[in-house]
Amino acid sequence: MNPTDPASGQPDRLSDPAETPSTAPAGVGLADSRTDSSRVAAFASTRGRYYAVVLALFCCILLISNIAATKVIGFGPIVTDGGAFLFPIAYILGDVISEVYGFAAARKAVITGFAMQLLATAVFFLVQVSPPGPGYENQDAFEAVIGFYPRIVLASMLGYVVGQLLNSFVLVRIKRAMGEKRLWVRLLTSTGVGEAADTVIFCTVAFAGVIPGWDFLGYVIFGFVYKVAVEVILMPVTYRVIKVFKKHEHTYSVDTDLARRAARV
């Protein structure tokens, strides 16, 4: 049994040498990189057993949320869109990826999600402009919903690229400064920064001129408060998921980060 830090869930071990990248150039060892310990943190390799699963789930949530976001929803004075039901989970998954696998892995997830959004937009456009077959009488309804999708995708991609990259960058920088302690600080801080940028960009591009006046301002404010509230409410779940990932990803160690740094020398 490996001893475990109860605060972070990080196994108190170095990674298996067979699973740790060994790409350091000749003459540059892992021990040489330890001198800059203030900038070193524990991460796992993206070749680990779970990264591909989280990446796939991340992309699915983005696609589903953007389709759902084509509908504006009103609960009394509260105005939002259908993406509100699922999209906050994308930021929780972004936190998991950033905390466990690092900024480069989060950037890869953002780029992959971006590519999947473009693919979905292209396919929906081709379906929309294709002539309806015999017996299909819902072309106008289909165009009314999917025809708005490119604007949603543009808004989502701009907001999500800026927001997710900021979210990951802030989280990883705080982790490098504070180590494994106070996970809640980096989760809340990174989410607050990322969601603020994402919400303002998305709402402005997607619904400026569609939702009128003060309703639009309320839409922006509610969107930000709601997404951060979901992060806070689900933080115990996020903690548990991150702890499980750190425990079962065998490359999760400081040596993985050191090897990555050595490979860039």
Score class of each variant (00 low, 15 high):
I78P: 03
V79I: 15
T80N: 10
T80E: 08
T80C: 02
D81S: 14
L86G: 04
F87A: 12
P88Y: 02
I89S: 13
I89L: 15
A90K: 08
Y91G: 00
L93S: 05
E99Q: 10
V100S: 01
V100M: 06
G102N: 07
F103D: 09
A104R: 15
A106F: 02
V110R: 05
V110Y: 01
T112Q: 01
G113V: 03
A115L: 14
M116R: 02
M116C: 15
M116G: 08
Q117I: 05
L118F: 12
L119S: 10
A120T: 05
A122D: 00
V123I: 15
F124T: 12
F124Y: 14
F125C: 10
Q128P: 01
S130P: 04
P132K: 11
P132V: 06
P132E: 10
G133W: 08
G133S: 14
G135P: 05
E137Y: 04
E137N: 13
N138K: 12
Q139S: 10
D140K: 12
D140L: 13
D140V: 11
A141G: 15
F142S: 13
F142D: 05
A144S: 14
A144R: 13
F148P: 01
F148I: 04
Y149R: 06
Y149M: 12
P150K: 10
R151P: 01
V153F: 09
L154A: 15
S156D: 05
